[in-house]
């Protein structure tokens, strides 16, 4: 049988686009880990919060989901910063697993508050362009996925600029590299951590808003799934490295879609995990992570 180049290209491009979505989900998690060294189990629930924000604005005011980013992102940032100040900052002295537990508790709290306010029924926003495509030759691209990819690029570019070309970004990087050192040169690391967690949550919320034309929001079910995907993405690339999270997301998307297209879809999630284990074996710090020298 002749190799079908068209469908190969179609699958590859789908994989890249799906990977862009994964990257968007993963990048906030990796940023938070890089600076605060905590694994945020509520990350997926933040994504869900973004979805509900878009659903609410759409049903009340008839807003297009993408327009609700204007509200969701600042709200997400403030909520994140507040959460860090009120809850996570209390765990400075505690063992590292404490943050894991607290965010786990937080995930339960968020999911169940959503359940009590919005009910358990899945909610979504139906936009007219939900299944529209644009074609390039014989390969077609989903508009929603393209928009998600665009959002990922904008967000990453913005984040990159902030981290590398602003005073704030320098302070964030300094805190990530060496907390004590950063404090010694006069950086208010407590404030930086609040900002970082705020950014992390704003990114998760953005992912939720961008995904809602594609998916359903459910209060207590899909949060854990998004969290898991974000974990795999970040570890694939290397925890705490933003560029690597993008690469990890793209890799995960391509591996999953290729596996499901040419092998069997039963094990779709396992393909990503197997690649993940393989990378762990060969490069424990992730595909693009810095190799940490033992001191």
């Amino acid at each position: 049988m002749m190799f079908d180049y068209v469908s190969f290209l179609q699958n590859l491009s789908n994989g890249v686009l799906i990977g862009g979505v994964y990257a968007l989900i993963g990048v906030g998690l990796t940023l938070v880990f890089g600076v605060m060294k905590i694994i945020n189990f509520a990350h997926g629930d933040f994504v869900i919060l973004g979805m509900y924000c878009a659903v609410l604005l759409n049903s009340l005011l008839g807003w297009d989901p993408y327009l609700s980013l204007l509200v969701a992102m600042p709200l997400g940032f403030m909520a994140g910063a507040l959460l860090q100040r009120l809850v996570l900052s209390r765990l400075m002295e505690a063992p590292p697993e404490s943050s894991l537990l607290v965010t786990l508790g937080l995930a339960l709290v968020i999911g169940n508050i959503l359940l009590l306010t919005f009910g358990a029924e899945p909610k979504s926003v139906n936009v007219s362009y939900a299944s529209s495509t644009v074609s390039l030759g014989k390969v077609s691209f989903s508009i929603i996925l393209l928009l998600a990819g665009l959002a990922t690029m904008v967000v990453i570019a913005g984040l990159y600029t902030v981290l590398n070309h602003t005073e704030l970004g320098r302070a964030i990087r300094a805190t990530a590299d060496n907390r004590l050192g950063a404090e010694l040169v006069g950086i208010n690391t407590r404030w930086i951590e609040a900002v970082v967690f705020g950014i992390g949550m704003a990114l998760a919320v953005t992912a939720g808003v961008v995904l809602i034309p594609l998916l359903f929001a459910t209060p207590t079910f899909s949060g854990a799934i998004f969290t898991l995907k974000a974990f795999v993405v970040t570890v694939l690339g290397g925890l705490g490295n933003i560029g690597a999270a993008i690469a990890g997301g793209l890799l995960l998307g391509v591996v999953e879609v290729m596996g499901a297209s040419y092998l069997t879809s039963d094990y779709r999630d396992a393909y990503g995990l197997l690649v993940f284990l393989l990378i762990l074996l060969l490069r424990p710090e992730g595909l693009f992570g810095k190799t940490v020298k033992r001191v």
């Binding site: 789908n14 879609v257 290729m258 297209s261 879809s265 779709r268 999630d269």
Partner: peptide, 16 residues
């Protein structure tokens, strides 16, 4: 074909 719950991208299967 089966898929794991929580999958949101069915394009590979539908293309097949």
């Amino acid at each position: 074909q089966s898929y794991d719950q929580g999958t949101s991208d069915f394009r590979p299967i539908l293309n097949r």
